[in-house]
């Protein structure tokens, strides 16, 4: 019990003193996850809009695949990315394994289905509402997609936040493809796993504080967004 108490105090001190290692790991976590988020939303939002607005041949199949991918265990995603990026794999020549880029790739694969599904859901509803009007106004397909993307921007931001929350807390996949290398690919989650294993609860708990704070902030933002949605602001 006193061990844990000791750890908590130490962790608190690490956070308030802005411990260099803690800061470094936190910033790397943010860098990897925010990059993954930008890439993932750039793929997922147009994909969600396309699935909502266009009737193309493999639409149902694409939706089914997305839903299946959403349930894919991240560890398996890590394994697959590992195989693809390893020296003998098809993309081995790029030497990406055990780099932040590899972690970004894994996170993108994990959160694209999540963001695309949430976005698709919101966009489909809005499209059902707008359909006749937008057709009647003689809009082009691009204009239609733009209209529904813009008018469901709050729901889309919620989708992106959900993706961020999932990515920042992910450990299995990025441990495998990143390797948890100090000063290179160590992020919050993998560092917590390592420090816990070593028995250094202070640093592990300090990192945990940061991670929990971020998760809470994301959830509060989603909640606040939901409120502006019902009140119809911006």
């Amino acid at each position: 019990m006193s061990d844990i108490w000791e750890g908590l105090v130490q962790a608190f001190l690490l956070v308030v003193r802005l411990d260099a290692e803690l800061i470094e790991i936190t910033l790397r976590s943010l860098q990897v996850t925010l990059t993954a988020l930008v890439v993932a939303t750039a793929i997922a939002l147009p994909l969600g809009a396309l699935l909502a607005v266009r009737r193309f041949r493999y639409r149902r199949l694409t939706i089914a695949v997305l839903n299946a991918l959403m349930g894919l265990p991240p560890v398996v995603v890590g394994l697959i990315v590992y195989i693809l990026l390893s020296r003998s794999g098809p993309f081995g020549v790029f030497g990406l394994l055990f780099t932040p880029t590899a972690m970004i790739i894994a996170q993108v694969i994990i959160i694209v289905p999540l963001i695309a599904s949430i976005a698709h859901q919101a966009l489909r509803e809005l499209w059902a509402e707008y359909h006749d009007l937008l057709i009647s106004l003689n809009t082009t397909k691009t204009q239609r997609m733009r209209a529904i993307l813009w008018d469901s921007r709050r729901a889309l931001l919620t989708a992106a936040l959900a993706g961020f929350g999932r990515a920042i807390g992910e450990v299995g996949a990025i441990m495998i493809v990143g390797g948890n290398i100090d000063h290179s690919t160590r992020v919050l989650t993998t560092a917590i796993a390592l420090e816990t294993g070593k028995g250094d609860f202070a640093l592990a708990l300090g990192l945990g504080f940061v991670l929990i704070t971020m998760a809470i902030l994301v959830n509060l933002s989603i909640h606040a967004l939901g409120r502006t949605e019902t009140e119809g602001r911006w």
Binding site: L126, E129, L133, S136, A147, G232
Partner: peptide, 15 residues
């Protein structure tokens, strides 16, 4: 198409 307009029975408003 460009010269017609339509107002539906249950009016749709953009959000």
């Amino acid at each position: 198409r460009k010269q017609q307009a339509f107002v539906s029975q249950t009016p749709v408003v953009l959000r």
